[in-house]
Design a protein around this nucleic acid. Structure first.
Lengths: 213, 213, 213, 213
DNA sequence: CATGAATGAGACTTCATTCAT
DNA sequence: GATGAATGAAGTCTCATTCAT
């Protein structure tokens, strides 16, 4: 069933395929990222040490520092990574949307799907009360927030919706999505549809609009 | 309206005049708490060390351990302290409330007032992106959440409001309050009334109910 | 023959004798200094590491840092120590002197005696070409130089000697003393008298005044 | 006057036009030397690392090791370089000399000229108290010292001067030259003539012979 | 109880050097 | 011969915690 080709040691450089060096570099960077994700997941950000991450990669200690300067830097790389993967998804939702409601529904649904998929890597053993990693404001994460903000502005304008305090509103929406998403992950089975429906109704109509369980 | 049993008030000493030993002990404990608040404020929780706290205290290093076992413990004491001071306020609002709306408005307003007052102690120099200290789920903070939860349940029942997913709802409300509160603190002048109005409307009616700026 | 009193464990604090704590502190500081002297002697300044010094003291690694911040700092302490011990000797010579010649002779003689006495601690295994530790300009060493300078000025003035470029002259005298002293230490037996006589004559009369061997 | 055999001159390539590989090799070696000079000048010998030198070179780290085995080796190459350039100068002075005085004057003058010319490369940013690089006794530097020693012996013998302790004397002369030379470099404007005159008189006649400023 | 020096584990980091490309 | 990433030994130093005074 497997048809994975086993590459011979000597890299073929016919076209502009990267040489072996380049490939190990990429692999190492990824290995560090993976190890870091696992370690942060198990110990939480604070308790984790660079040492722990290194140990898990199997690389030499010095190698870590060829890629990242500190625990903080890997962490941000990790966070950015998530944000960077989410942005195109968000953009797609924006493009598909016809009005605010459809955008909101699509975005939240996409976010919850994303959360559920990422869940495994992050949720394991996180010390109670430790902050969700994406809570840190890396530039990439900030960009996502900004994008949400901008999308809201555009879509609401398109709807000829009356002006609101967009700063507060976007913050509140993100907060609702984050918190409900968090709670969603704690339930079994994980009910993305239900959670998304709740969050959307909450934002669009507040308490009276909430679904009856 | 309220018949929730609270923890007993701090026992009042007969003559209200603690002996010397007692006074020193209380003073030391307070000194540590104050130093810790300042240090956490300046360095953030992670970067702060027990050493830093001790240094600022002026006490001997060993003395610290007569009061707290670790940085985490002081932090929790600090957080609990906030929660413990907020709980009676919350309780008062609960007692004054006549329906859900009045409770929500009162509670949020009280929370924002509380935030604004505490602001000074916490906000200074916090590294960008660091999590607000009250984000940690200490028992005392959890108790506040639980209390909100319970109060919501009672008040909504009293209103004969239709059932909702209280867990999601309370989480969402707290999230909105927290986030809008945070944003409020960033604006000058700090507008408690406006922020509270926004949060309440958001929760009660969602987007269509929001105030026009 | 020995009448050294063995002090009981419990320190007697009748008068202001230092307690045990104080005494270990002094002892530790001295132990570090001694270890450092030995290590610098054996490995040279550059090759020596803080670790080496610690190892030799038998103290815990952290203890070192309770006393000195770095290798450099111990080194300077060591150098200062020498300078600090030499200054009173120099002063005495200054006070005994009746003219420049007697001061010069006394000072150089004292310096060479000092060198010879210190010799043992420093000379062992010093890598060829490594600089003599007193070559570093610590404040205390600078003070000795300044004192020589000042003494020269005073004594020459007292002699009604014609003005010379004191800066060059003092530097040259110190250089001669240092270098001849160094060479002196390499010979067996160490001939302090001969070396001092050479240096003094060199300074007072140059080549024609030198002793015939 | 001189019949001292010197090391052979650098072999002149037949066509004076090195092949490409040869040119690169020479250029790299020189680049490393230049970078090292700069780095030692800026950081001092001890603080400087091979890394620093490589970085400044722009070469790959591995390349360094095709030329030198260690920081020490480059340093010695650098020092030797100075000594090697100075030796012919010294030799010329020796050949021109008619007696001790003329040799001494010529040699010191030449040394101070040399110092003043080299000054720029070395003096910049040298940490206070760090030793002048040529203080290290590399073989090539030792050779200069030995040559001074030998020249002194020959010239003094030629002068039918009475025997002196040549070892002390040469050491003292070098010390005076070094120290006065150092001080000379600190003054503005740099007065080579004055400094040389001072050093020569000091050696030839001691204090009474010094110039009045 | 307060004190504060000693402890030593261990985190962080750099560096010289190697070696596959 | 040039390259530059990987290596891992080793050094620096901090920190929480203990415990004799």
């Amino acid at each position: 069933m497997s048809n994975i080709a086993y590459f011979p040691a000597r890299p073929v450089l016919e076209d502009n395929k990267p040489g072996k060096r380049e490939r190990t570099k990429v692999a190492n960077r990824q290995a560090i990222l993976d190890a870091a994700r696992a370690v942060f997941g198990e110990l939480g950000y604070e308790a984790a040490t660079v040492r722990d991450i290194i140990r898990r990669t199997g690389l030499a200690s010095g190698t870590f520092y060829n890629y990242y300067k500190s625990k903080e830097e890997v962490f941000d790389a990790l966070a950015d990574d998530g944000a960077r993967r989410f942005r195109p998804i968000l953009r797609t939702e924006f493009e598909k949307a016809v009005d605010f409601e459809s955008f909101l529904r699509g975005a939240i649904r996409a976010y919850f799907d994303f959360l559920a998929a990422e869940h495994e890597s992050w949720r394991i053993n996180r010390p109670a009360g430790e902050v969700f990693p994406h809570a840190r404001a890396t530039p990439e994460i900030q960009a996502v927030f900004d994008e949400v903000h901008a999308a809201f502005a555009k879509v609401l304008e398109h709807d000829n919706a009356p002006a609101v305090d967009l700063d507060y509103f976007a913050a509140a929406c993100i907060a609702v999505a984050r918190e409900v998403g968090d709670k969603m992950l704690e339930r079994r089975p994980v009910d993305v549809d239900g959670a998304a429906d709740f969050a959307v109704r909450m934002i669009l109509g507040g308490l009276p609009a909430l679904p009856r369980p």
